[in-house]
Design a protein around this nucleic acid. Structure first.
Lengths: 179, 179
DNA sequence: TTGGGCATGTAAGATGTTACATGATTAT
DNA sequence: ATAATCATGTAACATCTTACATGCCCAA
């Protein structure tokens, strides 16, 4: 039994949210920009996937006249149904994280090891930068209550990401204090 | 350029922490039990990796007399050096998360959709169970101050995991309230 | 003594990452 | 016009997942 495929559903979700034709580049950018906290994808995954989904009838491919380069894709009714079905079934998977920083901390073990401080400082720096980026995006996309309600799902996961990173930053600083 | 391999370093780290010979099964269990919040691995990855690491001279393989089934592995000096080196270089990767729940929330978009409540309740249930497991493990492994200091790295990442899940649970409950 | 559980291991396919290739557009 | 950039796409490789295979031990 092959693993349950997620990427096609993500692509379907983006296409429905966009309410129009999209290119492979737009999908890649969208995932990296707006879903990056919870999913990662490379453009080299997207293009073959679009081809596959077209073959399966979930989307249709339309060449842009006078532009050989760009191809635009549109949702089919079958794609819509498939997406709704996926959203309705519970997903039993727990969020999975790969965090090399935590692994290293674990293996260093000795609180007095000088590498502990280095690791912490580097991580704090990275998380600070990332948090500033997220907060900027929050201010840009959701300046008022109306914008939050009009794109509720987006607001939700962005605020989730902000909180998560703030909490992590607090924790890292506390660890550094405690040395 | 192939991607930087992490698994061998994790195996080296476990072997050093254990200070003795270990089997493939023990390594698999250790990752799932103690590093599971930050790394995942299947036994079918571990056995080939041990073979490879043996060929590279990072570890040595020792058959157990009168037991064809089990093979025990031990660190070599080269393995020790390799591990220390890995722990010393900064890792520029940010923690990556794959969280289907958040993706679904994003795509449902409409706050009034009945599936929002279902998703939240299911997720709360899962996180509650997981949190209880983590808290139990915390109480079991680190009942007093001495035990925390003696395995500082382990204590650190376990408390990190507990906090992370508590925060997520709070957030989920708040979302459910807000419906 | 046989049948289930277990540690080890292999196989096949899906997924993810990095680097490279190609042709078109844009900027200088 | 030439170089840089960009969207698209491919290739090679590493990783991850699931299922299956094997031989051992132990208990009913």
């Amino acid at each position: 039994m092959p693993k349950q495929r997620i990427l096609p559903h993500i692509i379907l979700g983006i296409m429905r949210a966009r309410k129009g034709m999209v290119t492979g580049k737009q999908i890649t950018d969208f995932v990296q920009q707006d879903l990056g906290e919870f999913w990662q994808v490379a453009h080299s995954q997207v293009y073959p996937e679009l081809k596959r989904m077209t073959a399966e009838g979930l989307i249709t491919c339309h060449a842009v006249p006078g532009n050989d380069k760009e191809k635009q894709y549109a949702l089919t009714e079958e794609g819509r149904v498939n997406l709704d079905q996926w959203l309705s079934v519970p997903s039993y998977e727990t969020p999975q994280q790969k965090d090399i920083f935590s692994i290293k901390m674990f293996f260093i073990q000795d609180k007095a090891d000088p590498r502990v401080r280095t690791l912490l400082e580097e991580q704090i720096d990275k998380v600070e930068k990332h948090l500033r980026h997220l907060e900027g995006r929050m201010a840009e996309l959701f300046p008022d209550k109306e914008s939050k309600d009009s794109q509720y799902g987006h607001y939700i996961i962005l605020s989730r990401a902000v909180e998560r990173n703030r909490t992590q930053l607090d924790w890292l600083r506390e660890m550094l204090q405690g040395l």
